[in-house]
Design a protein around this nucleic acid. Structure first.
Lengths: 249, 249
DNA sequence: CGCATCCTTGAGGGCCATCAAAATGCGTGG
DNA sequence: CCACGCATTTTGATGGCCCTCAAGGATGCG
């Protein structure tokens, strides 16, 4: 992180070790600009033409869409993630990207990515890999929404947040700080804030996890993960290129 | 389709026109093997190491996962789609890919893709684009599952199937044939087959759409799409590279 | 200390799950 | 052509999860 202050968490816990020093350096130099944004800021807007992509350096962001009057949260990001790398190929997003709490964002011009694609197939492949990771997370959310009920869904999200923060070196001990409100968790789970409150009450009562004003406590993480039917294999933690850890079948 | 019998539908309706003749030819020649598979066959299995990817030439396939005893369907594919291109970078999938009805599949070795990545950045970018399209569809499903109730969810899926078949030249008139059963639709919507039956009854009664043993009828497609809160912009139809049609904001 | 935001609690109703059973359509073989 | 078996679709009754409306309590900030 001292050497690569803006991109040091990119693919950390996944394929970062597959990057050469030169590639890490190239990546770091891609970031032409860094900015701090307040809570609720738009990092990208639906429909807007993008000429740069954003890597999250610090804080949380969410992907959101409007359906009628309601806002839905489709996914979230932790430091080290490119939040709109798909904007490079798609040019326009079909959703918004908003900050949750204060965030630090690094910007990478599409022009620079274009050049990189011409010259560095290996690094390109790892960028591609990172966008596939996100699709894998989307699939898991679909599965979760189709099969689990409210309390299990939150438990699943808690387990995922914890795991992802851990991969990028931002979690230790038996608690995790997040800038999330109950209403935002509800938007991620497709339920009302009121019912989210009751679901959190259930987790608390059953001793699975406790969530108070953004801080998540869990004595027994294995219990949290079991309750949320969470299996981390979809996060492809520390897989090597093609020689990853076993995915339990 | 006469010139490119196996890959002629790849990105059709999206960025196929951005491919040069040489690139189309290259792509067609990537397909080293073609096979016909019966209903319910596995095109890929969770955890299995993949050394090739599969392009769907004819028929339908679904991505599925098991949660406990229940099977969830995460997405579906129509002819022209790569069904496991992500297997190229991820090497192992976190889900199964199964045929729905009889399908024809074309195989592309990862070795050949590797070579292509080194030599053809533009074609690589379009492959990447195609995998991003799928992520966009995943996001829409998340949104749909979070916000809509059963009857609207099916309507949304119907509208999507219709639109995607149309893009690859496989739909015309006011009806569409699919190999889907009510139980499979239920697995896509995260509800029970019994409730799916009632939801379909509701669509029929309200004159939105009629689904009978795989055949979907809709007199008024606009009405179907409105009922399912369907906005096709997430499918990025006929967007040019970076100069796509406007996404309505 | 006032205010905004977030969290919490209660009561009633609708959507969907579950259990149970029957009807329909379809392919096979007699 | 009909009989049969099977998967698929349809229907009914009951209960649980979650939504909606409404109001009250906590927390943190200026």
């Amino acid at each position: 992180m001292a050497e690569y202050p803006h991109t040091g968490r990119f693919l950390m816990g996944r394929l970062r070790h597959a990057l050469t020093h030169a590639e890490k350096q190239t990546l770091e130099e891609l970031v032409s600009d860094v900015e701090t944004l307040p809570d609720g800021a738009h990092l990208a807007r639906r429909g807007e033409v993008l000429e740069r992509s954003t890597i999250l350096v610090e804080g949380f962001v969410a992907r959101s869409m409007l359906v009628g009057e309601n806002r839905a949260i489709l996914s979230f990001h932790v430091p080290g993630d490119f939040v709109d790398l798909h904007g490079f190929a798609l040019k326009r997003l079909d959703h918004d990207v908003i900050s949750i709490g204060t965030v630090t964002a690094g910007y990478v011009s599409h022009h620079a990515l274009e050049k990189l694609m011409q010259e560095q197939p290996h690094l390109t492949r790892l960028l591609w890999f990172s966008s596939l990771l996100e699709a894998a997370i989307h699939r898991e959310w679909i599965c979760k929404l189709e099969q689990l009920q409210a309390a299990q869904r939150v438990a699943h999200i808690f387990a995922e947040i914890w795991y992802r923060l851990e991969m990028v070196g931002l979690a230790c001990g038996n608690q995790v700080r997040t800038p999330l409100t109950q209403a935002q968790l509800a938007e991620m789970c497709g339920i009302t804030p009121i019912h989210m409150n009751r679901a959190l009450g259930q987790l608390r009562q059953e001793g699975v996890a406790e969530f108070r004003r953004g801080t998540l406590f869990a004595e027994d993480r294995a219990r949290l993960e079991a309750f949320g039917v969470f299996d981390p294999s979809y996060l492809y933690g520390n897989a090597e290129l093609g020689m990853g850890e076993e995915l339990t079948s």
